[in-house]
Amino acid sequence: MSRIQILFQQKHKRVLNVYCTAGYPELNSTLPVMESLQANGADLIELGMPYSDPLADGPVIQQSSAIALENGMTIARLFEQLDGFRDRITVPVILMGYMNPVLQYGFERFCSDAARVGVDGLILPDLPEYEFETEYGAIIRKYGLDFIFLVTPETAEERVKKLDKLSTGFLYAVSSSSTTGSNKQMTSVQDYLQRLESYQLTNPVLVGFGIKDRESFDAACAHSNGAIIGSAYIKALEGAIDVGTATKEFLSTIV
């Protein structure tokens, strides 16, 4: 059983997944940020691998990616930073990124290195299910990594069920049709999450996009297993003198 599956066995409600960008705000912030997330209540960490053209991301995460790249962050450097991180961090860790840098690194080499350092799962939003089924899924499974697909309010029932079957770990429910960090109202989010609940999916569901404070976290958790916070946390790190203090202050407003 994977670290992610064990987490959801122990905790079904209000699971908190926090996104951070590797190499942000400083090149060597990656581990300190992850440690402070674990220390202050994150149940799961989604570690973003910066990319020059992050299509699904809004301005805040784009900006953090650009800074991380300027700082010199690369996938190779990330695996160096993560080497031995399991001595310090016990919560599940997911790598999130886009296909191009991963293909360039070598897809199998990437999965192998991720598994070796102790990463638990992957989110690659621009890896479609056809290519997953025909080519990449088998490699991901070979290295024992979970793979998390996204669904949105526009995703049809049949497709939600299919993506749930292909996913392991959890299913990522995007709260509204938007890029990350949007201010769209989550008015219809309860209907949507109740609909997902009624499908009796195999995987737990975490809700992401637009979760920024306790109110939106509570709303997201009402009919799901938990939520993902990204842009709001990246904003909190912006200009922070000490990432530990900034993380503690930010998460104390959520959990």
Binding site: L150, V151, E154, V174
Partner: peptide, 8 residues
């Protein structure tokens, strides 16, 4: 079609 689910 390497697109995020939001465009599907």
């Amino acid at each position: 079609a390497y697109i995020p689910e939001m465009l599907h």
